[in-house]
Write a protein that binds this DNA or RNA. Structure first.
Lengths: 199, 199
DNA sequence: CAGACAATTGCAGAGACTGCAAACTTGCGT
DNA sequence: ACGCAAGTTTGCAGTCTCTGCAATTGTCTG
């Protein structure tokens, strides 16, 4: 959460954000194929070459997840109450960000729309989701006091929660967004519990 | 499952497979960055331009899923016994292919290794998994006699099963592959059921 | 201020990918 | 068998993505 005081680091972060921001905005208004890396670099006031010091591709800049967000997620997960069960804690961390911070919510919806509109964004989008998964697995293992290489549970919990979250969000976004997202998610968990219960 | 009798279609399928095969083999032996699209096209005896009539990128050729496989998965799912619960049916369809057909198993393991070795394959790999998900959701909705746009359950079941399958496979592959894959999967489902149960 | 270190930039070049029009192959009706 | 219609392959020209390298500029530390 803490922004670095270091000038060098602050500039670096600013450049990162300027590039990501330019990438998203230009794509949203002009369309994906009408935006080149040169355009993005120009909008962020850096050389095209610098773009590739930060991102490995145009798509990455649009749908990538900022490292600080990952750290943030990890911190949030560690701060959840001890008595909360793992699955609740992980779900809460993810939902929390969507419902608490309007700017975050706006950004995730924009992302969802762009991915919907331009299927070529899907691969990198899923890779970004995988980054989140990796972070959560590591952190949850730490929180549970187990080793993620030997104990399946952290991975199982995280992959199930993120899968539900991701697919429910897409579903909710495709449909009219009638009910609140939190309700849709609760339904999804309930449905899974029902389907999973031995008859 | 049925191969087309049509000459045109048979040639097309053959070209598709020759390209995909060349892409996988060349990458496995030479390494990803040492293989160009021109190399792949040459190995498959077609022009480089033709490669792009079949695949949208080199990565796609390596880790993409053949349309016939998707149809195959759908068919398998529809053939599962009626009384089997959705979650079992989906899990069975996926596990079945790995354990029944040695060639399929070999191919999935090679794929897992390549993705592990070359992270730049991950995005397209995940996109390919998403293709499988889409197919399964549609088919499962049909099997359950519901509409996937209104009823969350098909999507919930499929995304949970595929997430577990995918992550368990990666875990099992990273570890020594000591226990049988089926056992690992069963453990994963059991763990999820436990974590999901309200206390 | 000076030297160490980090980030930016330009340049050159390989390779990925697309649109288009010409050539070729296959399918099908006569 | 013939020839037209439809589907596929190919070459070509050109744009854009992405990388390595070496030079430059900017920031930090003592």
């Amino acid at each position: 959460m803490s922004e670095p005081s270091d000038l060098r680091s602050r500039k670096k972060l600013a450049t990162y954000r300027a590039l990501a921001h330019a990438a998203r905005e230009l794509t949203a208004e002009r369309g994906l194929e009408a935006v080149t890396v040169d355009d993005i670099a120009a909008a962020a006031d850096v050389s095209p070459r610098t773009f590739f010091n930060y991102f490995s591709s145009k798509e990455q800049a649009i749908v990538g997840v900022e490292p600080a967000v990952l750290e943030d997620l990890a911190a949030s997960l560690l701060e959840r109450p001890r008595e909360e069960r793992p699955i609740e804690a992980v779900a809460a961390v993810l939902l929390e960000r969507m419902t608490t911070d309007a700017e975050t919510a706006r950004r995730w919806l924009l992302r969802a729309e762009l991915v919907e509109r331009y299927p070529s964004l899907l691969p990198r989008h899923l890779a970004a989701m995988a980054d989140i998964e990796r972070t959560l697995v590591t952190t949850l293992a730490q929180r549970m006091g187990v080793d993620a290489d030997h104990d399946l549970r952290p991975m199982v919990v995280v992959s199930a929660v993120t899968a539900l979250q991701r697919s429910t969000l897409a579903w909710w976004n495709r449909g009219g967004r009638t009910e609140p997202l939190g309700d849709a998610l609760r339904s999804a968990f309930a449905a899974l519990a029902t389907e999973l219960a031995k008859p």
